[in-house]
Amino acid sequence: MRDLKAVGKKFVHVMYPRKSSALLRDWDLWGPLVLCVSLALMLQGGSADSKDDGGPQFAEVFVLIWFGAVVITLNSKLLGGTISFFQSLCVLGYCVMPLTVAMLVCRLVLLASTGTVSFIIRLIVVGAMFGWSTLASTAFLADSQPPNRKALVVYPIFLFYFVISWMILTFTPQ
C-alpha cells in the first residue's frame, strides 16, 4: 500500500515537473512497467482481432521502450553523467506517462470519429504530450549532466519520445 502511494506520488511529480529529486532518490521500476504494459496493450488492442496485424506489436513496443531507455542511459553515462543506471531508467520510464495519457485520448477520439478533424485533435494532443514528456525528463535528468553538454543528452531523449509519439499518432484500429 505504501509502495502504491510512492508510485502515485511519482506520477504526480511527472505531471508537475519541478526540480525535485524524489524521482531520483528512491527509484523503482513498478511505475514504468505499468505504464509500458498499458501503452503496449492499448497499441496492440486494435490489431488483436484483425487478420493481418497492422498495429505495432506488444513485444515491439515493450522492447522499444526498454531498449531505448537503456541506450539513453548508457549515452548519458558515457557523456559523463553522475546518475546511476536504474535512476535514469526509472525517470525515463515514468516520463512515458504523458504519452500513455495521449494514447488514451487518441483511442477515445478514434471511437468518436476517424476524419481530418480527429487527426488534427490527435496531432495536437500527441504533440503537447510529447513536449511534456521531453521537458519532464529533461528537468529531472539535466541536473546530473555537466552543464555544457545538456544538448547532447537531450537529443537522444527527444528522438526516443519522438518515435513513441509517432507510433501513437499513426495508430488506427482496424
Binding site: D52, P56, V163
Partner: peptide
C-alpha cells in the same frame, strides 16, 4: 527510416 515506411504505402508490420 521508420517514419518513411509509415508515410509510404507500406502497411506497417513493425515487428
Amino acid at each position: 527510416l521508420l517514419h518513411g515506411m509509415k508515410t509510404s504505402d507500406t502497411i506497417i508490420r513493425e515487428g
